[in-house]
Nucleic acid binder design. Structure first.
Length: 418
RNA sequence: GGAGGGGUGGCAGAGCGGUCAAAUGCAACGGACUGUAAAUCCGUCGACGAACGUCUACGAUGGUUCGAAUCCAUCCCCCUCCA
């Protein structure tokens, strides 16, 4: 029934990860041969260390790598230490602030942490490894690079690349640095080929130009066929990119976002997204997914719970997922206060004004905002709407050693009284 | 180096001496309806104060003026064209 030979390819297609491949048959066959021979194919995923954690928007390629590894292949994660040191120009209008050594190292550490949630790193034959392109770019000689690599690129061709073309058409400025970006990326690919026998690059579709830059360089310079494989850009039904919650990025690393919030992000996904997200963000087998996505109306909430749980499990571990789920069930289904809600500790709550309480727990940015919300009946203490903005908390508000604060319907937190 | 255009709230983008805490759109938030969904409708969206109000804010620093996001000077940054 399936069109492809390799396990990996079939998985990708089935789960909606497949967008485009430089050579469908070629890559499929190559993977199939590797799978048959029990010999891992090597593939890589690149990211620039511009932040200290990846977020949900990055999960798609991470999950592709995860499946790649599950199929017995070896993932390489490449961090663009070199490109980040130059300042990543892809932000278009403004050049990003150049990163200093310390934040860079910190970011790389954060990325590694993000990666390791999805991939198994180690020494084994298909364990993931992490490399930094700074290692080979730091000592590169400009002239040698130009002569070696630059000769393989045609400016005429480069000008036709989408990333360049649209920029020129829109008469937006493009620096020479940016123009060179694809050479650097192409070179990365070839270095990995030479060093690790890496023949595949897996990425989001926005990387297509950079990928083909690598495959073409491989063919011209090293006479090898490299493969590129991209995912579609995953958007919600409104065509917006995934990964923002309340205007904030949904981070993968726990110090940037509590697991409960991570869970809630997926729990609150739109109906139309459930099937897609189950395929992409969980490891669940396809028949299970098909069953879940066929649920209608209210029942689809069951699917969302499973989605949230499974997604959290991958990223934060079983225990965290469980706690998050328990908390959610308690707060939303039983009207109680779950233990994993955001909380602050206080010796006593006497004399604490409502405004300060909500300010301190971080639900509002200012007292004015708290007042506004009170006027709109948006704040609750122990599930009772606060109507008086001058209300002052007292021991009478403490129930079982805590006070439950809510903003809107979804944001709940606790003041724990010691 | 020469000529010109610009820097405004999370973003986009008006305003070009007072009525400007600054139009409009997007995003965000609260409420209603629901299912912790979507769509829709209503409302909110600088800080502090119950409030007339006060403070901070239109690249930076000075100045002109009773009064400046708006005018002038200097500086910084960005863009376009020419060399």
């Amino acid at each position: 029934m399936s069109k492809f030979k390799s396990e990996f390819f079939n998985l990708m297609v089935e789960r909606g990860f497949y967008n485009q491949c430089t050579n469908e048959d070629g890559f499929d066959t190559y993977l199939y041969e590797c799978e048959k021979a029990g010999k891992p194919a090597v593939g890589y995923l690149g990211s620039d260390p511009t932040g200290d954690s990846l977020h949900v928007g990055h999960i798609v390629p991470l999950m592709m790598m995860r499946w790649f590894q599950k199929c017995g292949h070896k993932p390489i994660t490449l961090v663009g230490g070199a490109t980040a040191r130059i300042g990543d120009p892809s932000g278009k209008d403004k050049l990003r602030p150049f990163l200093d050594e310390e934040t860079l190292q910190n970011n790389i550490k954060g990325l590694k942490k993000s990666f390791s949630k999805f991939l198994k790193f180690g020494e084994g034959k298909n364990d993931a490894i992490m490399v930094d392109n700074w290692d080979w770019f730091k000592d590169i000689n400009y002239l040698a690079f130009l002569r070696d690599i630059g000769t393989c690129y045609s400016v005429n061709r480069m000008l036709t690349m989408d990333s360049v073309k649209t920029r020129l058409e829109r008469e937006q400025p493009m620096s020479f640095l940016e123009f060179n970006y694809m050479l650097l990326q192409g070179y990365d690919f070839c270095v990995l080929y030479n060093k690790y026998g890496c023949r595949a690059q897996i990425a989001g579709s926005d990387q297509w130009g950079n990928i083909t830059s690598g495959t073409e360089l491989g063919r011209r310079r090293y006479d090898v066929e490299l493969f590129g494989f991209t995912s579609p850009i995953i958007t919600d039904s409104n065509g917006k990119k995934m990964g923002k919650s309340e205007g904030n990025a949904v981070w993968i690393n726990e110090e940037k976002l509590p697991s409960y919030d991570y869970y809630q992000y997926f729990r609150n996904i739109g109906d139309a997204e459930v099937g897609k997200c189950l395929r992409i963000y969980t490891d669940l087998p396809m028949d299970e997914i098909r069953r879940l996505e066929s649920l209608q109306d209210k029942e689809i909430n069951e699917a969302k719970k499973i989605l949230a749980f499974e997604a959290t499990k991958i990223c934060r571990g079983l225990e965290e997922a469980q706690t998050a789920q328990d908390t959610a069930v308690k707060t939303f289904e039983m009207g109680q206060a779950g233990g994993d809600l955001p909380s602050i500790e206080k010796a006593s709550v006497d004399g604490l004004s409502v405004l300060d309480a909500f300010l301190q727990i971080g639900f509002v940015a200012s007292k004015g905002e708290a007042r506004r919300l009170i006027k709109q009946a948006g704040l609750k203490i122990n599930d009772k709407v606060v109507s008086d903005e001058n209300y002052v908390l007292s021991a009478a508000d403490v129930v079982d050693g805590q006070v439950k604060l809510s903003q809107g319907k979804k944001k709940h937190g606790l003041i724990k009284v010691a």
